[in-house]
Every structure is written in C-alpha cells, then in structure tokens.
C-alpha cells in the first residue's frame, strides 16, 4: 500500500520536472516571440528547394 506514496512522489517529481523545464525555457527567451517561428518554419523547405535548383546550374557550368 505504501506504493501510493511512491507513485505520488514520482508524479509530483515528474510534474516539477516539467515546471522547471518551463521556467528554463522562459528564461532563455523562448516565449518572447511566439509568432515569428511559426512563419520561419514554413521557409526552411523552400530554401532547400532553391539551393537544389541552383546546384544543377553550377555543375552544368563546370562540365
């Protein structure tokens, strides 16, 4: 029955762990700008695509 104490302490520790993670992330400034990353996320693919587009042109020149 003392298992409930173990479980409770584990659950509280896990919760505290998440809470500390939250505080750390705020302190690092992750919550300062919640808008730009949502747009930036959409760019990454396009940049990769573009550099692919460029590469064949460069190699063509070399050959």
């Amino acid at each position: 029955m003392s298992i409930i104490y173990v479980l409770l302490s584990i659950s509280v520790i896990v919760a505290l762990g998440f809470f500390i993670a939250f505080v750390v992330s705020v302190r690092k400034g992750q919550y300062d700008d919640t808008y730009t990353p949502s747009i930036r996320m959409l760019f990454e693919d396009e940049i990769v695509k573009e550099s692919k587009k460029d590469q064949p042109i460069e190699t063509n020149d070399k050959h």
């Binding site: 730009t36 930036r40 760019f43």
Partner: peptide, 27 residues
C-alpha cells in the same frame, strides 16, 4: 510581412560576414 522575415534572415547570402540574423516579427 513574411517576405521581410525571410530576406532579413537570409542576410548572410548578401553579406557573408553576417553569421546569424533573427527577426522578432511582433516587435
């Protein structure tokens, strides 16, 4: 606009001495 974010975050293509540029859009 989002184009602004994009071009400003790709500043190092214009000027290689720029290492990282990061935009905070709301501010």
């Amino acid at each position: 606009c989002s184009s602004c974010i994009w071009v400003l975050e790709n500043l190092n293509k214009l000027q290689p001495a720029v290492q990282v540029s990061q935009v905070n859009f709301p501010e």
